Amino acid sequence: MADDTKNGNDQRTKAHYTGHRQRLKEKFLNSGGAALADYEILELLLCLAIPRRDVKPLAKTLIREFGNFAEAISAPRERLREIPGIGETAIAALKLAEASAQRLAQSRVLNKPVLSNWQALLDYCQISMGHQKKEQFRILFLDRKNRLIADEVQQEGTVDHTPVYPREVIKRALELQATAIILVHNHPSGDPTPSQDDILMTRKIEDVGKQLGILLHDHLIIARSGQCSFKTLGLL
């Protein structure tokens, strides 16, 4: 009798989350992602990775732990593994969502004139770097028409420092036959204000570039709280 009761409860629980899952899918398909809360988007993602379990509590746990959808999918794998109920398949689903967002944002700027599409460039940099836990130094290489021809991460560092070598930056630009560059790096601290080291490094790259015909358009600093442009600040 006890087993029958348990089986009945299991079936009702399964029916509940199966019906909820179907309603959530229909809500998404009918109204789009804007109609869903962050935890509901995560729930749909986790449904694909964990098909036979109610994942709504797990989705809400991720939001409580990391704050929002973007922070959850960009969290380091090591941190995600600390969440009870998150296995490698679930981590793969979250990281696939992160990679998809980055690829979509990149497609909107690659091989396009970036100076006339500046907001799309800022969006791409924010998606790619805004949630990184370590400093990353990225170079965007432009051709004579200011089209983005290459986007490369040159260096990765610690939580507050990335070694940058001005001559290596310009050497790579010459190898790609770029005529201009945009520097981008992130501040994991969350504050995009440039440091004195950032300013000195930027001036060195600008000076070396001028000697070899490579124009430095801007240096962007990306943080969770927003972006900072050297050109806008009058530092270039």
Rank of each mutant, 00 (worst) to 15 (best):
Gly213Met: 07
Ile222Gln: 01
Leu29Glu: 11
Glu135His: 10
Gly190Asn: 06
Gln119Phe: 03
Leu29Tyr: 08
Leu42His: 03
Ser107Tyr: 08
Leu140Ala: 09
Leu142Glu: 11
Gln11Asn: 09
Ala90Ser: 14
Arg138His: 14
Cys47Glu: 05
Val55Tyr: 02
Ser74Leu: 00
Leu183Asn: 01
Leu236His: 04
Leu140Val: 03
Thr61Arg: 01
Thr232His: 11
Ile41Gln: 07
Ala2Glu: 11
Gln177Lys: 15
Val164Met: 09
Asp10His: 10
His16Asn: 06
Asp191Ile: 13
Gln227Arg: 05
Ser107Lys: 07
Leu62Gln: 09
Tyr165Lys: 08
Met1Asp: 09
Thr179Cys: 02
Leu115Glu: 10
Ser31Asn: 14
Arg144Asp: 11
Gln22Ile: 15
Met1Thr: 07
Phe141Met: 07
Leu215Thr: 13
Thr162Trp: 05
Gly190Ser: 05
Gln155Glu: 14
Gly157Cys: 08
Ala37Ile: 00
Gly85Ala: 06
Glu152Ala: 07
Asp38Trp: 08
Ser74Glu: 07
Ala75Leu: 02
Leu121Cys: 08
Val184Met: 06
Ser128Trp: 01
Asn146Ala: 11
Pro76Ala: 07
Lys25Gln: 13
His131Arg: 15
Arg203Glu: 15
Ala97Thr: 08
His20Phe: 14
Leu45Ser: 09
Glu65Tyr: 13
Val208Thr: 05
Gln154His: 07
Lys204Thr: 11
Lys56His: 10
Lys133Ser: 15
Ala120Asp: 11
Leu29Lys: 02
Gly87Ala: 12
Phe28Met: 06
Leu220Ala: 05
Thr202Tyr: 13
Ala93Ser: 14
Ser31Met: 06
Asp143Thr: 10
His219Met: 12
Leu220Ile: 14
Leu212Thr: 03
Ala2Asp: 12
Met129Thr: 01
Glu175Asp: 13
Asp54Pro: 00
Gln102Ile: 15
Lys134His: 10
Ile222Phe: 10
Val169Cys: 01
Gly19Glu: 13
Arg138Gly: 00
Arg108Met: 13
Lys25Arg: 12
Glu26His: 12
Gly213Ala: 12
Lys210Gly: 00
